[in-house]
Simulated scan of single mutants.
Amino acid sequence: MSRAQVDDVLTVDHLVRRFGDLVAVDDVSFRIAPGETYGLLGPNGAGKTTAISMIAGLLRADGGSVTVAGHAMAPDAVEPKRHLGLVPQDLAIYPELTAKENLRFFGKLQGLRGAELTQRVQEVLDLIGLADRAKDRAKEYSGGMKRRLNIGVGLLHKPELLILDEPTVGVDPQSRNSILESVEALSVEGMAVLYTTHYMEEAERLCDRIGIIDSGRLAAEGTRDELIQLTGGTDTIRLGGSGDLTAAAARLREHPGVEQVDADRAGLTLTVRDAPTLVAALVGVATDSGVRLADVEITRPDLESVFLHVTGKALRN
Rank of each mutant, 00 (worst) to 15 (best):
L22C: 07
N44Q: 02
Q89M: 13
I128M: 01
P88D: 06
F105K: 07
E116V: 13
G64R: 03
D21G: 07
A115M: 12
D76R: 14
V87F: 06
P88M: 03
A24E: 04
S65E: 11
A72T: 15
G57Q: 07
A69G: 14
G70I: 11
L127H: 06
A74N: 11
I52F: 02
G39N: 07
I52G: 01
R148P: 01
G111A: 05
L91R: 08
F30D: 00
A24P: 03
H83V: 07
D76C: 08
P43N: 01
L41D: 03
K139D: 15
K100C: 10
Y94G: 12
N102E: 07
Q119K: 12
A24Q: 04
A24G: 04
Y141R: 01
E160K: 15
E36F: 08
A51C: 11
S53N: 13
A134V: 10
R120S: 09
E160H: 15
L41G: 02
E101L: 05
P95C: 13
R147A: 08
R113D: 13
L149H: 02
S142G: 01
E101A: 10
G129E: 00
L22M: 11
D136K: 13
Y38T: 08
G42M: 03
G144H: 00
D27R: 07
M145N: 02
L125N: 00
A74Y: 08
A56N: 10
D26A: 04
Q122W: 09
K108C: 10
M54A: 13
E123I: 04
A131I: 10
L91Y: 06
P43L: 01
Q122V: 10
V121M: 05
V78M: 13
H71R: 15
R120L: 09
G154V: 01
R60D: 04
R148E: 00
V87E: 06
R137S: 10
M54I: 14
L112F: 11
V153H: 11
L112N: 06
R137D: 07
P159C: 13
Y38H: 12
R113E: 15
A74G: 15
Y141P: 00
L58M: 12
V68E: 05
G64F: 01
G35S: 05
P159D: 13
A138Y: 09
Y141V: 00
D26S: 05
A74C: 12
